[in-house]
């Protein structure tokens, strides 16, 4: 519903954003695609050559790739489980009336605003350090041997750090969804004889399902690209114990200067992310009525 005049204006006003994003997507992505078929190492200039799928072959058969794939899955899955379960519990708690709700809400969402490098370093040094960390002090106080978290259970430690950062996000979204639940529906269920657990399973959980899906999809997009937390805590180690796909590609391209191999890894990462993105886009697209 508009005039030709306003439609022309619409095309014109949309153009800058579209052109910028198109450029941002197409130019580097096609370059990555091109590099991925090249022998191209920054340390060996002049040695570039077309080598077909060889980079992919190397990348996909490298044991480090499988380790990284597995680590990525564990990292994403672990954080999702912790944040969604914890977020639901927190949302239910924060939805109750109590004194100081506003303040507690602020406390709970705070970790989301902490930059990844800070939270990784604080956790690594001040909490998980086996000598001076707070957990070590705590263990000592209880007469237990201190644990060197990032050496003994490195991936689990990183999962905890990342989950701490994302718990507020899940909580906030689930809380918002919870508050949109019509209380009459709960009262009706109560009148029908449903106890608290029944109400949670049959009324609250189905109501939260949509928000949980949104949380899962959006977090997955971000969690696939976790980088800074790994860089400043373990640097992907020990060995490849905490190397995810993102970190592997980074190491291959910017530490080993293997542009071809890194590009092949980048394309693999794009494909993996797209698998998730398709679901997310469907979700959001369905709610978008223009």
């Amino acid at each position: 519903m508009a005039t030709a005049h306003s439609r022309a204006a619409a095309r014109l006003t949309m153009a800058p954003a579209v052109v910028l994003l198109l450029g941002w997507m197409l130019i580097p992505l096609s370059m990555t695609l091109y590099f991925s078929f090249q022998r191209y190492n920054l340390l060996m200039p002049g040695d570039e050559a077309w080598i077909g799928f060889l980079n992919y072959e190397y990348f996909l058969t490298d044991p480090a790739f499988f380790a990284a794939l597995w680590n990525t899955l564990l990292l994403v899955g672990g954080v999702l489980v912790i944040t969604i379960a914890g977020g639901t519990a927190l949302a239910l708690l924060l939805d109750q009336p109590f004194w100081g709700r506003g303040v507690v809400r602020l406390l709970v969402i705070a970790p989301f605003f902490v930059m990844p490098t800070v939270s990784a370093l604080v956790w690594k040094n001040m909490f998980m350090n086996p000598v001076n960390g707070l957990f070590a002090s705590l263990a000592k106080g209880l007469g237990l041997p201190p644990v060197d978290f990032l050496a003994q259970i490195p991936l689990a430690s990183i999962i905890v750090i990342v989950a701490w950062q994302w718990l507020p996000f899940a909580t906030l979204i689930l809380l918002t969804a919870l508050q949109s639940l019509d209380s009459e529906r709960l009262e009706a269920a109560e009148m029908d004889g449903a106890g608290p657990l029944d109400r949670f399973i049959h009324i609250i959980l189905p109501h939260l399902a949509r928000a949980m899906t949104v949380v899962t999809l959006i977090q997955t997009i971000f969690l696939l690209s976790v980088f800074a937390e790994i860089l400043v805590t373990t640097n992907g180690g020990p060995g490849t114990a905490t190397t995810n796909i993102t970190f592997l590609v980074y190491a291959q391209s910017l530490l080993q200067f293997d542009v071809g191999g890194g590009s092949a890894g980048g394309i693999v990462a794009v494909i993996l992310a797209n698998l998730v993105a398709i679901f997310l886009m469907r979700m959001i697209g369905r709610n978008l009525d223009i």
Partner: peptide
């Protein structure tokens, strides 16, 4: 929105 889902490592090198 889909451009937002492009993992940064995919375009890091270029």
């Amino acid at each position: 929105l889909s451009t937002k889902m492009l993992p940064p490592v995919g375009v890091l090198i270029p």
